[in-house]
Simulated assay, not measured.
Amino acid sequence: MNILQRNNVQTVGDPTAPVLLYGHGFGCDQTMWNQITPAFQHSHFQLLFDYVGSGQSDISAYDAGRYATLQGYAQDIIEICAALSLTNNVVFVGHSVSCSIGILAAIAQPGLFSNMILLGPSPCFLNDPPHYFGGFEPSDLHELLDLMQQNYLGWANYLAPVVAGEASTISGRLSDSFCSTDPLVMKQFAKATFFADNREDFAKVATPCLVLQHKQDALASVAVGEFVHRQLKNSDLVVLDVAGHVAHMSHPQLIIDAMSQYLAGQGGGGYYR
């Protein structure tokens, strides 16, 4: 199987330059990074891809057993890097569930990533009182999955504004992205995403990380970002003054600035709130 075709891998820049590998969020695809990549086209070799079942990936490669958990998506990342002969010094940039997927890849192949930039991570979306509040009760998520089954278009139109936050102009694009994916594949990805608990996995990673958290985010609160920061052994936390879950789409310059500062070796700018 051609891995690069399977995951619709696209490259930008000089292959001898430092590597940035972008992982998209649930219901999205690689084009969500389009406002970020131009800023690094002359300094980095950038790799973009679609998880199997998303975007322009090869849907015939979808395996319900493999992708029943996030481990299957982490294997996608490892196989993409292997296909490009990348064994170390990769900077992984992940959004939302890709943060957890990237963490699993980092555990499975230590040394592959030199650094990780995690935008809107949530190792567990479920509340586990009194010590952890992921934002949702099990009943909330089951209702979301039921809505997907009964009225897929209605589900997409409900979730997109929640993800977009204050950036209402992005809501339509997100809804279109949700609707462009096979509903059965999307529902399984939703189960793998929203019922995963990777809290202990984050504590296993010593790779230097920059955690970028949105200040007002219905899917991943600042408290979740603080939890991630504590779990990771070597991380900077920056809380972005953004409402929503997609700052790379709604406020790309904030992300570019934070990434540039971090990649220049100046840290993530410390902790802002």
Results as ranks from 00 to 15, higher is better:
residue 90 V to P: 02
residue 189 F to N: 11
residue 100 S to C: 09
residue 106 A to W: 05
residue 192 A to S: 12
residue 109 Q to F: 00
residue 4 L to K: 12
residue 23 G to A: 14
residue 117 I to E: 09
residue 240 L to C: 09
residue 157 N to D: 15
residue 216 Q to L: 11
residue 68 A to D: 14
residue 158 Y to V: 00
residue 22 Y to S: 03
residue 101 I to T: 09
residue 180 S to G: 05
residue 67 Y to Q: 07
residue 120 G to Q: 06
residue 200 E to M: 07
residue 137 E to F: 13
residue 262 Y to P: 07
residue 147 L to S: 06
residue 108 A to P: 03
residue 220 A to D: 02
residue 197 D to G: 05
residue 85 S to E: 15
residue 171 S to F: 09
residue 141 L to P: 07
residue 47 L to W: 07
residue 39 A to R: 04
residue 11 T to Y: 00
residue 72 G to L: 07
residue 136 F to V: 10
residue 8 N to F: 14
residue 17 A to N: 03
residue 16 T to E: 13
residue 36 I to T: 08
residue 93 V to E: 10
residue 125 F to T: 00
residue 200 E to R: 11
residue 179 C to I: 14
residue 188 Q to R: 15
residue 63 D to Y: 06
residue 100 S to D: 06
residue 160 A to R: 00
residue 214 H to M: 14
residue 203 A to M: 02
residue 86 L to T: 01
residue 45 F to Q: 10
residue 34 N to M: 12
residue 13 G to Y: 05
residue 252 P to I: 11
residue 197 D to W: 04
residue 79 E to T: 15
residue 54 S to I: 00
residue 151 N to L: 04
residue 93 V to K: 08
residue 166 E to N: 11
residue 234 N to S: 14
residue 39 A to K: 08
residue 207 T to Y: 11
residue 179 C to P: 00
residue 47 L to R: 09
residue 268 G to F: 06
residue 182 D to Q: 12
residue 50 D to N: 15
residue 100 S to M: 10
residue 189 F to D: 10
residue 41 Q to S: 06
residue 265 G to E: 09
residue 89 N to Y: 01
residue 17 A to C: 01
residue 241 D to W: 01
residue 250 S to R: 03
residue 239 V to G: 04
residue 273 R to Q: 15
residue 40 F to V: 00
residue 84 L to F: 08
residue 61 A to G: 11
residue 179 C to S: 13
residue 8 N to Q: 12
